[in-house]
Write a protein that binds this DNA or RNA. Structure first.
Ligand SMILES: [Mn+2]
Ligand SMILES: [Mn+2]
Ligand SMILES: [Zn+2]
Ligand SMILES: [Zn+2]
Lengths: 142, 142
DNA sequence: TTTCTAGATTAGAAACATTCTAAAATATTG
DNA sequence: CAATATTTTAGAATGTTTCTAATCTAGAAA
């Protein structure tokens, strides 16, 4: 990846400040990695490896801290699908997922391609925070 | 829980044999714990604790082995919802789940109470293995 | 610019769920 | 009962995530 332009860095910096976070070298690098490309589903380890490849020294602890802060700030969604690791999703629009059972890979499904036409009322004293549809898919054999 | 009747133990024994498993003391105890009560969502740790409480000595490794064997035999479904631990579901019918965001608790939603009326075609070379709908719910405030 | 300090980063330890290993125990068959 | 294939098990190992407490730094104040 080419070095980001001054403008892009200023944008990211402003976005971090707007979310109440100091624009540190680490947060700027992670924000650029996360938001420069299109929609992504990435784990902490993967993002850490990507930063290392770019010769940005960031500890794994900071990657975790930052991913959670970004999630709290509404810049990311955390996905807990297919036990094991957490994925962080840069796609904030209403959408669902294909889940590759073999690899654990996630692929977006636009929200309007899935219609959940009937849902039961939530139990007393609770409200619906969201509805997640996961379409599990496997390699077709034969 | 009262000691299970001879008949129930014979039933479980036959069920294990039918699935190609030797009816060991450990498997019988776990099968009784899992299938005696109604539908359950239970983790390996929880089931292990339940067995200990019943003074059935079973190692945690055996609980994991057995849960996976039961799953392979179609006696259980493994649920990977809400990262962290796996839940094993004794409800084999087509159904979905309420997921309590606070506690991680799962509650069944009968399959026919949820209608997913539109789904996209799976990517080339794959087939749909299943569709899981998770209704995330939170304590209602105010 | 220098100083100050709340906030941020970090290495490494700890926590936690799960899987692995290989030795001992057991169920089943002959 | 003897033989053996299967099962169980303690404990180590693995993989992910969180915690701790020492160090560092961004931003504000002087
Ligand atoms: Mn998390
Ligand atoms: Mn599993
Ligand atoms: Zn997504
Ligand atoms: Zn269920």
């Amino acid at each position: 990846m080419a070095t980001p332009s001054e403008k892009i860095i200023r944008d990211v910096t402003a976005r971090l400040r707007a979310a109440g976070m100091r624009p540190t070298r680490q947060r700027i690098a992670l924000a650029l990695a996360l938001f420069a490309k299109g929609d992504r589903h990435i784990t902490a380890e993967q993002l850490h490896a990507e930063a290392q490849a770019q010769h940005v020294g960031i500890s794994l602890a900071t990657v975790y801290n930052t991913l959670h802060q970004f999630t709290r700030a509404g810049l990311l969604r955390e996905l807990a699908i297919g036990s094991g690791r957490s994925y962080f999703d840069t796609n904030l629009s209403h959408h669902h997922h294909f889940f590759y059972e073999g690899s654990g890979q996630l692929v977006d499904v636009a929200g309007d391609l899935v219609k959940v036409s009937t849902v039961p009322a939530p139990p007393k004293g609770t409200r619906v925070a969201g509805i997640d549809v996961v379409i599990r898919i496997t390699e077709r054999n034969r």
